[in-house]
């Protein structure tokens, strides 16, 4: 069976912010993530800059290489091309926004090298 994305990326999904406020996934703003992370005891927002996007050997998957955090640590993830990432100040973006829009109805722009995505790490990692 074809792999698919988790249900919360579908347009209209109800998302609870850290302060309890409810928003639809397509209405989320950069500030919602930043404020929620500020309230969180465990999670910290990191900036993850897209350094490379390569096609995977697995159909419909892409390999995205990020530089994570202030140390620009290299992290690669293999995701479905329609998997949406939240880009700072821009919103939802994926390797194939047409597919994201088609499958999830989530408004989406094209993820590109140089984009800075919101990611999470643990606050007390060291």
């Amino acid at each position: 069976s074809a792999p698919s994305l988790p249900p919360y990326f579908t347009k209209g999904s109800i998302i609870q912010l850290a302060d309890g406020e409810l928003k639809r996934v397509e209405d989320l703003k950069t500030e919602d993530f930043i404020q929620s992370a500020e309230i969180s005891n465990e999670l910290k927002i990191d900036s993850s800059t897209v350094e490379r996007i390569d096609s995977s050997h697995t159909p419909n998957f892409a390999i995205i290489q990020f530089a994570v955090g202030e140390h620009r640590s290299q992290v690669s993830v293999e995701v479905l091309v329609e998997y949406p990432f939240f880009v700072f100040g821009q919103g939802w973006s994926s390797c194939c926004p047409e597919r994201t829009s088609q499958l999830l109805e989530l408004p989406c722009t094209k993820l590109s090298v140089g984009d800075v995505c919101i990611s999470l790490t643990l606050k007390n990692l060291r």
Partner: peptide, 19 residues
């Protein structure tokens, strides 16, 4: 209607500690 926590939408990209 299901309600999802905000952090489920954000990828957890934990760099491996190199030092």
């Amino acid at each position: 209607v299901p309600v999802f926590p905000w952090h489920s939408l954000v990828p957890f990209l934990a760099p491996t500690q190199s030092d």
